[in-house]
Amino acid sequence: MKATPILSVEGLSKRFGGVHALEQVSFELFPGEVLALAGDNGAGKSTLIKAISGVYRPDDGRILYKGEPVAFDNPRQARDLGIETIYQDLALADNLDIGANVFLGREPLRRLFGLLPALDRKRMRQEALQAIETLDIEIKRLDVPVRTLSGGQRQAVAIGRAIYWKAEILIMDEPTAALGVPEQRKVRALVEGLKEQKVGVIFISHNLGDIFAVADRILVLRRGIMAGIRRTADTDADEIVKLMVGG
C-alpha cells in the first residue's frame, strides 16, 4: 500500500450543538483497500461517513480526494466525483427492474420512430447486467421488479449501480445487517470483487466476523474520537473490542 491515498481525512471534527460527534479524526484510504469502521452505537461512525459523502459539512479539518482538498455541499457533488454511499435500505425502487434502478435519474434515451425521445430499456438492462456480472452474481430475469430479488442480489444491484457510475470510493453502511448467513457470504465476496477493481471501500459493521473476513484495516471510534487504527493482520477481535469499549 505505498500508492497515493485516494482519500485522506485530516483532523475532521463535527459538533452538533455542544455534542462533539467527531473530534480530530484522521485516516487515509488507498485504492483497492477495505477499511472497516467499528465502534459502539453513538461512536460517530455514521457522522464520519456522512461527512465524507457530503451529507454533513465538517466544522473542522479537511478531506482530500486524490490529493485535492474537496468540500461538498450535498451528496450529489460527492457522487459526481466518484464517492458513492450505499445505505442499509439500499435506496432501490422496489417496483422497478434492475436496469431502471441502475440508471435511476440518469436514464439513456432513444428515438421512437426517429422522433420522440423514449427510455432505452434494452440498453439499461444490458448494461446493468454487465455491471452486475462483474460482481459474479447470477441474475435470471432482468425484467422483474427488484423486490422479487434476494437480499444479496439486491445488494449486488446497489453495488452494481455504484460501479457502473465509476465509483472510486464506496461507502457501505452495515451491508450485511439484514441478511441471512449465505447472503452475508455473498456480500463479503462482493467486497472482495471491489478490491480487485481497485475501488476503495469504507464499511460500517457491527459484525466482527465480517470485519476480519474482508477488511485490510480497522478504524475504531469511541465517543467521536479515534480509539485506534489497526491492520487486520496485526490485531485480533479482543483488541478491537477493548478499543471499542475503552479501558
Binding site: 451528496p75 435500505d89 435506496a91 432501490l92 425502487a93 422496489d94 417496483n95 422497478l96 431502471a100 434502478n101 435511476l104 435519474g105 440518469r106 436514464e107 427510455l119
Partner: peptide
Amino acid sequence: QYTYAIGGNREAAIRA
C-alpha cells in the same frame, strides 16, 4: 419513470 420511482421508494428517488 420518475413517477413510478417516487411511488416505489420516495427516498431512493431523492437520492438518485
